[in-house]
């Protein structure tokens, strides 16, 4: 399953968009930026959004002219077969 990481040049940009997405009700959470995705310009944090929320997140970014560095998709490398229930 591919998940999307919104990358930023600094934490200020990241936290600002996090607030905007929360206000707009777009599900997202702060996650470490994947090492493999981290270009020279990226900072340690990213915002993780599921595929279903990606369009809404992009719309929110566009509506507010929010600044970000890149959006990258990445396969979740943890197996769904790990049998953790609650």
């Amino acid at each position: 399953m591919v998940r999307y990481y919104i990358l930023f040049e600094n934490y200020e940009q990241g936290l600002a968009l996090h607030d905007l997405l929360d206000e707009a009700g777009v599900r997202n959470r702060i996650a470490p930026a994947p090492a493999a995705a981290r270009g020279k310009l990226c900072c340690g944090m990213s915002l993780l959004v599921e595929e279903a929320e990606l369009a809404a997140a992009k719309a929110c970014i566009a509506a507010h002219g929010a600044v970000y560095y890149d959006i990258v998709g990445m396969e979740n490398q943890l197996q769904p077969r790990r049998d953790r229930y609650c």
Binding site: P32, A33, P34, A35, G44, S46, N76, Q77, L78, R84
Partner: peptide, 24 residues
């Protein structure tokens, strides 16, 4: 294995509540 270190750190934080640092 070849698990992205950030995913590992995220899992540690989200599932186990363990704060570590990933990346470079």
């Amino acid at each position: 294995w070849d698990l992205d270190s950030a995913m590992a750190a995220d899992e540690l934080a989200q599932t186990y509540g363990i704060a570590t640092r990933a990346g470079a």
